[in-house]
Design a protein around this nucleic acid. Structure first.
Lengths: 222, 222
DNA sequence: TGTTGTGAAGGCGTTCACAGCC
DNA sequence: GGCTGTGAACGCCTTCACAACA
């Protein structure tokens, strides 16, 4: 399979195509055009075709794409045709939300270990998983062969958490703490910062207001 | 104040500069160069200067930026110099995580109303806020003058939730449900999809593995 | 006629590099 | 010497537009 280096934005769109194809299959559709797919994803049809073309040719001219086949192709391209075991560090509200999010499990992401430093949480069970003390992280993550770690600790504990994960051999880390983390270059790090989402929206709203005021104050002719 | 149309990525960086300046102020620093700021943010110094230049000239050649002053400038630019009341639709785990995230409150985001359709949740209190039935959404959001809505419902309920928020007069919506939402053009919509973060990371890990295998199979000379 | 696949063109964000100022 | 502010160059992602095919 082709494994090109592609933009983050492209991967994000592929994920949404993958989800839409799942829905289309449930609706009983056999074929879909790039135009239809684009409409549901909120992008242009040329964008859909270009995105797919990085990985091969999946459509048939004049007809479109076979829903089931394209769904499976994308599943394999995105690496969702297998199980991804994850270790969760921090057992607070964000961790709980991630753990409970059914969508993940359906796509192959399983939280198989949870760690915290709070002695009151250690020993509690979330479903089949018992929360363990962070002391146990390295041996447990090694034993389970987990390669994907999720940091959901307070900011001050995040660097230590990721250091332990790396020491235990994970190769990918998703960071939900609002702090820049240092990892060796071979480890893939992705940051998710929900505060930035709120702040970006605040900027847009404030900017729109300011522009509105300005337009009213100095009306444009025409 | 200048209110240019800038890229999303620029706003995200401004948010991180803002946070870093807060830390620098706490550390007691008076001045900071674009190079230092850039290092802590994980970008280039030219990027920092360019980002700031969209809004004015804040530095002094040969010296750098005044930490406290730049912090306040960014605070105003990002619209964080005031209170943002938010309405939360859906009172599940994601909502609970957002509600509990202290960082938001410190930056002026307050959840002043929470809605759900689950009768068992209605009437419960989170801090000072009582969960109300979604039936009460429009009058309550109107009464409180809330302009920022957060959709944290299951996917199937998300469009209805956002329709109610829009009917009640919100001008900005943050959507945590994995579903494309339709809103009128004057309403600002931002989507946050945590599944995409996991899937993007899975792509990177799988791609790195595939490239690794390939490199070992066909070793490069040198 | 309808639709894909893809080089070429376009647009936009980032980086460069240096004049200008401390 | 140190550092900012910024036009110009660069590179990358998106859009265009059309040949190829059903």
């Amino acid at each position: 399979m082709r494994v090109p280096r592609i933009a983050d934005s492209t991967v994000a769109r592929l994920c949404s195509y993958h989800r839409i194809l799942e829905e289309l299959a449930q609706e009983g559709r056999r074929l879909v055009s790039s135009r239809r797919l684009a409409e549901r994803a909120g992008v242009t049809s040329a964008q859909v075709r270009k995105d797919l073309s990085y990985f091969g040719t999946f459509g048939r001219r004049g007809l479109g794409y076979h829903v089931q086949r394209l769904h499976e192709e994308l599943r394999a391209i995105l690496g969702l045709d297998r199980r991804w075991d994850c270790a969760l560090v921090g057992a607070g509200h964000i961790a709980r939300a991630l753990y409970s999010y059914q969508d993940f499990r359906r796509r192959g992401f399983h939280f198989v270990a949870i760690f915290d430093t709070n002695e009151e949480l250690v020993g509690q069970r979330w479903g089949e998983v018992e929360i363990q003390h962070v002391r146990r992280l390295v041996p447990e993550v090694r034993r389970l062969g987990v390669r994907l770690g999720v940091v959901a600790t307070p900011a001050r504990a995040a660097q230590e958490a990721v250091d332990l994960l790396v020491a235990a051999g994970v190769t990918g880390v998703l960071n939900f703490a609002p702090r820049k983390l240092n990892v060796p270059p071979e480890v893939h790090l992705r940051n998710v910062n929900m505060a930035i989402e709120f702040e970006s929206l605040a900027y847009s709203l404030r900017a729109a207001e300011a522009r509105g005021r300005r337009r009213r104050a100095v009306p444009v002719e025409e």
